[in-house]
């Protein structure tokens, strides 16, 4: 069976700025695939090439074995697209917008009417269907956009940052819906800079940074590859800097402790990576007691996707996010999008 999405060696630059340098990944039919990376990493550009809004400079972009470059119309029929910023005509009602969408995808009118009512019902939009979309909240807008993207029963639904700017409840509604979608056999490709989102939803993911795929696999594979467990230790609720440093020196000398970082943002708590010792919690406890350090709290966890990102790029996703925010020229990006 052909890949639902096949992207190989994709390059795309806008003028002198290289947005995507070399991106390759494959999405299997029926899975939820996540593109994870900070803002400005090239996720949206990749999606724009996939949805035929931008022409790649080089590389292969295929949907269900169909080239998005050579047969864009056939590719468009197989794709549903939910953009990051929902563009609804605010004068139209939700139902009118869906009817417009149905005509743009050439659905026969009897089938379309029934399908629109089904989707409105499924997404709990029936009550709002005859109100103008200008009156909708963010969550409603996103749900209507989801309905629009699914109207023609696409093989692949592409969502660009589906929950940015949504409240927690709407976010969970969207997540739950995407899981139902997967269960029904639709392939889902989402981009996100939220680790939890990709971790919660994706069967497999690719981490993108500065226009390049730096790692890919299932979330658990990636985490295992980084290896080690994480221990977060607080000596006191607010540990004096000096005391934290002393504890750090002592803990670093333990053979199974790989690294210790003092986190001043959280009351000088200590973040440890441990490996090759199953009984490390007791071991740490005893060592601390021997050196007469108290323990306020101690938690252990498996590595997160953030640790994967950190291991691959040498910075946390949050740092990358901040750095990217400073570098970005939002105005220029907006202009590019309009082209």
């Amino acid at each position: 069976m052909a890949n639902a999405v096949f992207i190989d060696n994709l390059h795309k630059s806008y003028g002198s700025i290289t947005a995507v340098e070399n991106i390759s990944f494959q999405v299997q039919p029926g899975e939820i695939f996540g593109l994870l990376g900070p803002n400005g990493a090239g996720k949206t550009t990749t999606i724009r090439c996939l949805t035929t809004l931008a022409k790649p400079d080089r590389g292969t972009v295929e949907v269900c074995g169909i080239s998005a470059v050579k047969n864009p119309r056939a590719a468009r029929r197989r794709l549903g697209y939910v953009a990051q910023e929902v563009a609804l005509d605010k004068v139209l009602t939700g139902r009118e917008l869906l009817h417009l969408q149905a005509a743009l995808y050439h659905l026969p009118s009897e089938g379309a009417k029934e399908r629109i009512e089904r989707l409105l019902e499924l997404l709990n939009l029936t009550t709002y269907a005859d109100r103008q979309t200008g009156t909708y909240s963010g969550g409603l807008r996103k749900r209507l956009d989801l309905a629009a993207g699914l109207l023609h029963q696409p093989e692949v639904l592409v969502l660009d940052e589906p929950t940015v700017g949504l409240d927690i409840e709407s976010r969970f509604i969207v997540w739950d819906f995407l899981r139902q979608l997967k269960a029904a056999g639709t392939t889902v490709l989402i981009t996100s800079h939220y680790l939890e989102e990709i971790d919660a939803l994706a069967d497999r993911l690719a981490i993108i940074d500065s226009g390049v795929v730096i790692d890919s696999g299932s979330p658990s594979q990636l985490k295992e590859r980084v290896g080690g467990d994480r221990v977060t230790l607080q000596i006191k609720e607010f540990t004096p800097e000096e005391e934290a440093q002393q504890a750090k020196a002592m803990l670093s000398s333990l053979p199974f402790v790989q690294s210790v970082i003092v986190n001043p943002a959280r009351g000088n708590s200590l973040n440890l990576i441990v490996k090759g010792e199953s009984n490390y919690l007791t071991n740490i406890e005893e060592s601390l007691a021997a050196a007469s350090f108290p323990i306020f709290s101690m938690t252990q966890s498996r590595p997160s996707l953030d640790d994967v990102y950190l291991a691959a790029t040498g910075r946390t996703l949050m740092d990358a996010e901040m750095a990217a925010a400073g570098r970005r020229d939002l105005k220029a990006e907006k202009k590019e999008e309009m082209k």
């Binding site: 269900c64 029929r77 023609h152 029963q153 139902q180 979608l181 029904a184 639709t186």
Partner: peptide, 10 residues
């Protein structure tokens, strides 16, 4: 309602 329908896509 949520499953893909390739027959629609030609």
């Amino acid at each position: 309602s949520l499953s893909p329908d390739p027959s629609l896509h030609g």
